[in-house]
Design a protein around this nucleic acid. Sequence first.
DNA 1: CCCGTTCCGATGCAAGCGCATCACATCGTA
DNA 2: TACGATGTGATGCGCTTGCATCGGAACGGG
Lengths: 195, 195
Amino acid sequence: MPKQVDHESRRRQIADAVCHLADEHGLEGVTLRDVAARAEVSMGAVQRCFRTKEEMLAFALDHIGARISARVTARLTESPAQSARTALGHATTEISLLRPEHRAEARVWLAFVAQAAVSPPLAEILRGNYSGLHGLFTRLITEATGSPDAEREARTLLALTDGLTTHLLIGHLSPDTALDTLDSHLTRLWGDESA
Amino acid sequence: MPKQVDHESRRRQIADAVCHLADEHGLEGVTLRDVAARAEVSMGAVQRCFRTKEEMLAFALDHIGARISARVTARLTESPAQSARTALGHATTEISLLRPEHRAEARVWLAFVAQAAVSPPLAEILRGNYSGLHGLFTRLITEATGSPDAEREARTLLALTDGLTTHLLIGHLSPDTALDTLDSHLTRLWGDESA
DNA sequence: CCCGTTCCGATGCAAGCGCATCACATCGTA
DNA sequence: TACGATGTGATGCGCTTGCATCGGAACGGG
């Protein structure tokens, strides 16, 4: 056998390059050549890892989705002693990608969401991610409030975080304003349900 | 002078073509040739109306933004006798583009938003649109509830509608579910503020 | 030790892109 | 009526794209 490269790690390496490029110039700026250059591999290597460009994009979306989800669950498990309310607060701020260090991830996410609106395979992946987050939010809200409307509250919260992230990216909101809006919504959620 | 074509109406005609193509294949599927073909004009005519492709996209974004805003204000003025609450309900359902006949506009909007995240000129246009909508929402909420937090509620509502639209487009939510979520949020808004 | 298998990376190719160019209709004017 | 200005649409150009191809390097088995 030849050199025997770890394919899986190479795929992740390429997916990271895709995310970097999508952050800088949007998904339209993601070409096979630029991806190969950024990942510091040859173009042939990229083509061997992924049969088509679309397959590469799908893997990259899965990759970044998994990374974000992992960060959320990590945040929850590292501070398990606190209440479900603060846990949900942590989860939402993590999801909404409001902090500057996650701005790049937010841009990549938005680029993929837009593409998913006209690409069923990408939409399928996103649906999976959102379903998972919806379930997580529902569980936390139920735990914190016992409300029978937890599913609906989870939908509202998830849509709100996405909307705030979007408005942040196009400069309509500042990070502080977005965070304040999110906090306010959570505060009212507790007030309503536990009263 | 030669044929003397109405430039402004032609620009709108081209902008409509841009929107149709963006709806079908995303913004990446918008090429000068396809735009010309869809608008039933020659490619040279497109280039005469807009010096560059980016200028054309900016005009198209302005065009669709104005159309949506116009529809919202039209909806408000055509039923002025009702309360500010129902007015806001109408405005939000109009903005959130949940109805099937506005699905195309929603897809176009999402495509432009994503592009705006990496294109300052487009972001500038979007910021103007959102500022106008934020002002409108703030006014209606103030009128309906007298709450001092009207600005924050308006931000929340605007972000929520955008998030719901996004989730609808990628198939995470059904139109009915999205509408129900929006209605629920509005109901709670009235309950909180007027209590 | 050498050969066969397996993987790699450079190159080629057809298609499509945005943009510039230019001869040609078209109409007001003298 | 003849002319010149002006807007028009077809064509060309340089470049990039995604994808297919192919010679060669790198190992393990006989």
